[in-house]
Design a binder for these strands. Structure first.
Length: 128
DNA sequence: CGATTGACGTACG
DNA sequence: TCGTACGCCAATC
């Protein structure tokens, strides 16, 4: 009799742990303003992980499933190099997105990267 | 369960 | 400035 009705079937709710490192990375990246870029180390350090910048990159790997979408194209390495362009739909996609925002990319590297760099530790850190 | 890899960064020479 | 070595944590083999 424990046989419940059809509508009694339990549906596995796919709830992502917001406590996960990835979610935090997604949030920070989503805070990156238009026409600006950030680097993995800044995000990692902002989250308190510090040297685990690699995890940020790994988190971006899952960013394709993140909702809302994460502007991963605004995230580059500390050299301003489009290290993750290979993981986009196509390598040129990342550069196109950046140029679309007015960011000039030369030799797979962000021009004036230092000026366009948006550091959450500085921007958000002082705000919040 | 151990070894390897990875969209990185820092330290050292 | 450049190349090498190491750490970091999670996923994959």
């Amino acid at each position: 009799m424990c046989k419940e009705g059809i509508n009694s079937q339990v549906q596995p709710v796919v709830v992502e742990d917001k406590s996960s490192f990835f979610e935090r990375v997604f949030e920070v990246v989503r805070q990156v303003p238009y026409g600006r870029v950030t680097n993995y180390g800044a995000i990692a350090k902002f989250l308190g992980t510090g040297k685990s910048a690699r995890l940020v990159g790994w988190a971006m790997n899952a960013s394709h499933s993140a909702m809302p979408p994460v502007p991963a194209h605004r995230v580059v390495n500390r050299k301003g190099l489009l290290s993750g362009k290979m993981h986009f739909a196509y390598p040129e996609h990342m550069q196109e997105l950046l140029e679309e925002e007015g960011i000039r990319v030369v030799n797979d590297q962000v021009a004036d990267f230092k000026e366009l760099l948006w550091d959450p530790l500085v921007e958000i850190g002082l705000e919040d």
